[in-house]
Computed example of a mutant assay.
Amino acid sequence: MNTFEAVRIVAAREIRVKLRDKTFLFSTIFFLLFSVGATVLPALLADGASTVAVTGTAPAAVTAAGLDVRTVADEAAARAQVRDGEVDAALLGDGTVVALTDAPSDLVNALSTRPTVELLDPSAVDDTLLVLVPMFFGLIFFFVSLMFGLQIAQSVTEEKQTRVVEILVASVPVRVLLAGKVLAGTVLAFGQIALIAVVALAGMRIAGGDSGLLTLLGPAIAWFLPFFLIGFVMLAALWAAVGALVNRQEDLSGASMPVQMVVLLPFFAVTMFSGDPAVMKVLSYVPFSAPTAMPVRLFQGDAAGWEPVASLVLLAAATVAVLFVGARLYEGSLLRSNGRTSMAAAWRDREARRLADLETESA
């Protein structure tokens, strides 16, 4: 059996186990419902009666439609209230409707003839979406990477605790076992994320999302997928190493705290500073926050065309480095059964094993 075949067998076993896990199935359903809600909710929130500034007397059709009509002195005042967000739209004396990003459908439909529509800032993103989209990307990456990462760590610890790992290592190399677990977790997590992305786009269609919104959100979701894939592989190696450092499930929570913080802090940073372009630009190049920050910047229109490519390359380089560190800690602690192993001890033990293997080969 070659290395690739061994990795495939280990990964297939892990995938079969997880597909029968009720927690995995329920979490998938939850995230699908969440993605539908996140895409449909903005349309539902926009269904209230619009506030309209008018110059002079409002037409009877507008009054009958139940709109909140506010009389202003002149057209300049009407445009100023629209730009400041005090009203949703303005109806000028010549019948022109003035709006900021999109004309309110209830006002347009109330008029007897379709008026001329003037948009002051057609490229602006709705304020509700500016809050929901960063939260959407952040929650998806945080919960999925945390959930699947913990499952990888728990699987490794369980095999150590039951001493099954000794049988497995006798059949396949340690790195093959690690590669299989990381591959299985990545396939399941990426499959879940891809399904959520498809459902989110479908939810936008069902909610009546316009082509402008799809144009903004589509590239962000498309870039989120490769960012998530590479970012999860990086974190999966760390989770597997954490699982190998302990011998009991009870000790896993404390040992995994550093990795949990690595996942948690970027989530809070992106959601809290999504409105600060300078901070978001820095976060989009930090490997642990880039999978969330860069898609958000693409949605907001703040990223140049070359930036996601550069950020993805930097993330890939960081992933290679983290994989090396995680594999070394995993190998140095997997077969140790004398309590919790420190990272320093695991690092030294892996080096000692390598030197011993070289001496054996030389002899």
Rank of each mutant, 00 (worst) to 15 (best):
T3W: 08
E5Y: 07
A6E: 02
I9W: 04
A12D: 03
R13D: 04
R13S: 14
R13V: 12
R16I: 06
K18N: 00
R20T: 11
T23W: 00
F24T: 00
L25K: 01
F26W: 01
F30V: 08
L32E: 07
L32K: 09
F34W: 09
S35N: 10
S35R: 00
G37Y: 05
V40Y: 06
V40Q: 06
L44P: 05
L44R: 14
A46F: 01
D47W: 00
A49T: 12
A49H: 11
A53M: 07
T57Q: 12
V69W: 02
D74G: 12
Q81W: 06
V82Y: 10
R83N: 13
D84A: 07
G85R: 14
D88C: 02
A90H: 04
L91A: 00
D94Y: 01
V97W: 08
V98Y: 06
A103W: 03
D106V: 03
L107P: 02
N109S: 13
T113S: 05
P115S: 14
P115T: 11
P115F: 01
D121E: 13
D126G: 11
L130A: 11
V131P: 05
P134F: 00
I140C: 06
I140G: 11
I140H: 03
F143A: 13
L146T: 12
L146P: 00
L150P: 00
V156G: 08
T157H: 08
T157L: 08
K160A: 03
Q161C: 11
V164F: 15
V164K: 05
S171A: 13
V174K: 15
R175E: 09
G180S: 04
K181S: 02
L183Q: 07
A184H: 03
T186H: 03
A189M: 01
G191R: 03
I196D: 03
V199M: 05
A200L: 09
M204H: 08
I206P: 00
A207V: 11
A207P: 05
G208Y: 05
G209H: 01
L213F: 14
L213A: 02
T215E: 03
G218I: 04
A220S: 14
I221C: 04
I221K: 09
F228G: 05
I230V: 15
F232M: 10
V233R: 01
L235G: 07
L245T: 14
Q249S: 12
E250T: 15
D251W: 07
G254M: 14
S256E: 09
M257R: 10
M261E: 04
V262S: 09
V263T: 11
V263L: 15
L264P: 09
L265Y: 04
F267L: 06
V282W: 14
L283V: 04
L283T: 15
S284H: 13
V286E: 08
P287H: 04
S289I: 07
A290D: 07
T292Y: 01
V296G: 03
L298F: 06
Q300M: 13
Q300E: 04
A304G: 12
W306M: 04
P308R: 08
A310Y: 01
V313Q: 03
A318M: 12
A318T: 15
V320Y: 01
V325W: 13
V325S: 07
L334M: 11
R336F: 03
S337P: 01
S337T: 15
S337G: 10
N338I: 09
N338A: 14
G339H: 13
A344F: 08
W347I: 12
R348C: 07
R350E: 15
T360I: 10
S362E: 14
